[in-house]
Design a protein around this nucleic acid. Structure first.
Lengths: 187, 187
DNA sequence: GTTCACATGTAACAGGTTACATGATTGG
DNA sequence: CCAATCATGTAACCTGTTACATGTGAAC
């Protein structure tokens, strides 16, 4: 078993019990949303399968009007599987960036469009960075601090690089129409 | 059409004609191998489908003993599709790191194992960085230089962070056995 | 003799996402 | 009244990888 949604859920549940819904929130809003991703369509089946396999236990908390909350806990067997998956040499980092693909082909686009993409990316990076900074204060766990620090370091570097190289393309000025002749971008 | 193998092939073919085999080499050994990935199992079908759709043309070069080389060229229609896919606002960067997942759970592992993982990652980052540095000299294309510069910036930041925080775990000393009691990692 | 580089392709499988189905409660 | 939050789950789909099938020539 490599690094998949099952392992991810085990890792999150190691920090404390949670429902599928809560796991999704942590994945998309938490401190580590920049390197973790999973949807309900993969989380819920993963939790069911691991419960059947004895890696998790599940207690249903009844609620009025809402479906039962199903709170999952990791079992000793689950911890063992988690540790085993941690002991195999980690595969290479995978980084996919539509933004960089766009920048690679910047010469095919009107400069203002490229400048706009850089500005968008800068905003997004600053937003993510602020998110980590605010979350890192509230936690006192060495692993989390290390990972958060790593994330901040590369985001700060990315921001610095983008700001330094921002002026290769015209500023994003609302109201300025794109140079009209986009069509025939080929030489 | 989002950023998939088809778009990736269009992007590579925009820089010049190539065979499926050559595209694979560029993807795994080129300057951008850190943010691009594709296997034969996805490249060949993509090239066939796009040729049928008129986005590429294919000329077969006969060879003795070897199968024909099929050299693909991008057509004007293909360039149009490429530019269209570039004009849609790029989705968020996706970063998946088994290494960071491991570090997040460093407290579950013997410290020497964690130190070893950090050292491995440092070696890998330095290798990738050297690869980009050597390749960037030989190219004089603004988009490529920008992307290579971005890659170098974040890798240098990652290396600096790992080196600064390296000493949180015991040095990787071959011959030193792991603290024997790994088993019961749970509290 | 065996491994590597060249060169293309397919089928089975894995792993995920998206959209749908269901339904109450709260806030604007 | 409409949207969002809470809460779970399924089925259809998409996209890609792995392993296989095939074959030559060169280097070690």
């Amino acid at each position: 078993m490599g690094m998949n949604v099952r392992t991810l859920c085990l890792g999150i549940l190691h920090f404390g019990d949670a429902t599928g819904y809560e796991i999704k929130k942590k994945v998309e809003q938490g401190m580590f949303s920049h390197f973790i991703e999973a949807s309900y369509g993969s989380i819920y089946p993963a939790l069911t399968a691991m419960t059947e396999a004895g890696l998790l236990t599940c207690r249903a908390e009844a609620q009025e009007g809402k479906p039962d909350r199903k709170v999952y806990s990791i079992t000793p067997a689950g911890r063992e599987v988690l540790v085993d998956s941690l002991r195999v040499k980690p595969g290479a980092d995978k980084f996919k960036s539509q933004f960089l693909f766009l920048m690679l082909h910047a010469d095919l686009l009107p400069p203002s469009h490229v400048g706009c993409a850089v500005d968008d990316r800068l905003r997004e990076l600053n937003r993510e960075l602020a998110e980590i900074r605010s979350a890192v204060c509230t936690c006192d766990h060495p692993g989390s601090e290390f990972v958060a620090g790593y994330g901040m370091a590369i985001m700060e570097a990315a921001i610095a690089y983008l700001e330094k190289n921002r002026d290769r393309w015209p500023a994003e000025r609302p109201g300025t129409q794109d140079a009209p002749g986009l069509g025939a971008a080929a030489e």
